[in-house]
């Protein structure tokens, strides 16, 4: 009954075929099976946001998604977003503004912030805080993170104008 189940999905554009136990969540699959350890695991019940990834372009908590549920889906992790250069400016803004200390929450913060910037070109600070409200950072007090996201939004808007 609890035998491995076949699953096929795209991870950062690469096709992956695997046999997994139904109980294996996507975060563990990415980390343990694929060694994509940029996806972090904090609370394992959807509260902290450290495990945020994109499935078919939308952000989700990978600790609350079973690997078998990702059958046929396209999963993007922080490694994918980073390697493609999609968030290079956001990463630079985080570094510049000291928007990270221990870095544990950072992959989830970056993916969630990028999600906001994709939907709203220049969000105000309240909107930034609200969009990031499901991502815990225990180091920075959030101020610098909000600054970095805001600065990136402005730079992108200027570049686009």
């Amino acid at each position: 009954m609890n035998a491995p189940v076949p699953v096929s999905l795209l991870v950062n554009g690469e096709p992956i075929d695997a046999f997994v136990l139904p109980r294996l969540n996507l975060a563990d699959f990415l980390r343990e099976n694929l060694k994509l350890t940029g996806t972090h695991i904090g609370c394992e019940h959807g509260v902290c946001g450290a495990c945020t990834v994109r499935i078919d372009g939308e952000i989700v908590r990978s600790c609350l998604v079973l690997t078998v549920q990702a059958q046929g889906a396209s999963v993007e992790t922080i490694e994918g977003l980073s390697d493609s250069g999609e968030i290079a400016d956001l990463q630079a803004a985080f570094r510049e503004r000291n928007a990270l200390q221990c870095g544990y929450c950072t992959p989830g913060m970056l993916i969630t912030a990028q999600d906001l910037l994709k939907h709203v070109s220049v969000p105000d600070r309240r909107a930034i805080r609200e969009h990031l409200s499901g991502n815990y950072c225990r180091c920075t007090g959030y101020q610098a993170i909000v600054d970095a996201v805001e600065a990136t939004a402005m730079t992108r808007a200027e570049r686009g104008a």
């Binding site: 139904p22 969540n25 019940h45 959807g46 600790c63 609350l64 079973l66 078998v68 549920q69």
Partner: peptide, 25 residues
């Protein structure tokens, strides 16, 4: 199992441990 956003936390916390999940997703 539909979206799993309440079920999975409950299962991860071992508040629930069903024998089988029927995924209607």
């Amino acid at each position: 199992l539909s979206g799993g956003q309440s079920l999975m936390p409950a299962m991860n916390l071992r508040l629930l441990s069903p024998d089988i999940l029927v995924d209607i997703g």
